[in-house]
Nucleic acid binder design. Structure first.
Lengths: 252, 252
DNA sequence: CTTGATTTCTGATTGGGATCAATGATTTTT
DNA sequence: AAAAATCATTGATCCCAATCAGAAATCAAG
């Protein structure tokens, strides 16, 4: 029987209150009682294997998702087969918010590595937000942040050179990882050069060349997916005339 | 005395219920009573002159704004003095949502032409959304739409050629104007080539050349700010391999 | 280990759009 | 109405990054 296995799985699942992400995630700023109410509607499914989909473009929208561990990419498929990466999502980040409007997901979400995910049925969430003002406010903030982040990225994509884009990308990763308790200066990229390129509007060859270039400059030490930032200052210096990014980079 | 003038101004102000935009604006889907409650917190100030600011980067966030007539651009200022246009906002579109997160506006909003604006104090709005489920849902949808739109634009900026960008821009304008009761095929651009270029990540010269080019192809008739679309089909054809855009273009 | 598939790196070439520069058209100012 | 300022057009040149092409490294599996 598999019954026992399931119970075991449930036991290892972590409630919001004891989750290390509670200070960046949805429960931020909630009273203890309210966290419990939120907790009760959160579904914690089995971890998603690398390459598995959380949802796909056009699927009926029913839930938003929070990455607990691992990493997820969102992307859309172009008619010509190529994919356009929309975003990379680290622990504590919410996915699927863009599906609210039309009632269906407008992008696909795929695990870049084995990832634990919290699922929050949106109709249940809306019931809660209507009775918990702090939660409603937190949701508005979350959605607003998403918009600000997109704004920064748009500015990056429409103005900056390839060098600035990759520098901004690496710094964003560094900051986000650091605020989640990981090292700010060494980490493994869970995405390919191709995916970074798609996200930043660059060819994969350009991304590869830039990694080499940054290495020659003594800014990075790169080995395949493994990146060590040797000179954070210099990396920041590369995007010195980027208002938006510098202001917003700390956010996500 | 100016008292009489003020009263006159108040009299010409249009309540949400009798506003032509009510089917695309915030009141969408609300009961009659709830529209009245929303109406009661809407501030209708005197029209904004061309070039006047609605708010500026860093200002304390207190309200969201809806364009009633006219057009508004949002933008950020780079340290080097150049500005980055974030968006163009037509009647019925909401501005300032990106300020919720940090409690201050992260961009500036300036009238491109004389514009009537509805101002909605956000703390009052949040009180209402907590008691009117439909309004809360509408706010979530609105924020979600903003995110989807940004996503489309990011894809456009990171993948497409100059030609595709301008075509998408013109079609977006055409569709949005049409859904507001204006002509889909002839309109006046309220923004300069420079501003279009900034928004699309192109040099103003490129924008100008493309207008000429589209004219040579028989797609447009352009005279300064005045644009007439002669061949909508051909214009759509230019962005045939753009998933995201074609799907999303109808939205705003 | 070997084979094949995928990913990354590097070099050579090309092209789209930026930049520089000059002129013309339009609006605003005085 | 003239002068000034802004905006749009057009041409010439240049450069960054895309594309094309191939080698090398890594990974997956028999």
């Amino acid at each position: 029987m598999t019954a026992h296995k399931v119970i075991t799985l449930n036991k290892i699942q972590i409630a919001c209150k004891s989750c290390g992400l509670s200070n960046i995630c949805l429960p931020l700023g909630l009273e203890s009682d309210d966290i419990d109410r939120l907790d009760s509607i959160v579904q914690r499914n089995r971890p998603l294997r690398k390459g598995a989909h959380l949802f796909q473009t056009g699927d009926k929208f029913h839930s938003v998702f929070v990455v607990k561990t691992g990493a997820v990419k969102t992307y859309t498929q172009c008619p010509d087969g190529t994919e356009q990466v929309i975003g990379f999502h680290l622990p504590g980040e919410v996915i699927g918010l863009d599906g609210i409007e039309l009632g269906k997901y407008i992008c696909s979400a795929k695990a870049l590595e084995t990832s634990a995910i919290c699922e929050i049925p949106f109709d249940r969430l809306e019931e809660l937000t209507a009775t918990i003002p702090n939660l409603q406010h937190q949701m508005f903030r979350l959605l607003s942040r998403e918009i600000s982040n997109d704004t920064s990225l748009m500015a990056l994509l429409s103005k900056s050179t390839a060098e600035e884009r990759l520098a901004a990308f690496l710094l964003s990763l560094s900051i986000r990882l650091h605020s989640r308790g990981f090292s700010a200066t060494e980490f493994n990229l869970s995405m390919s050069r191709q995916e970074i390129g798609s996200y930043l509007g660059l060819a994969l060859e350009t991304v590869s060349r830039l990694f080499t270039h940054f290495q020659e400059e003594g800014i990075l030490k790169v080995n395949r997916k493994y990146v060590e930032i040797l000179d954070l200052e210099k990396l920041y210096g590369l995007l010195s005339h980027q208002t938006v990014c510098l202001e917003k980079l700390r956010a996500p």
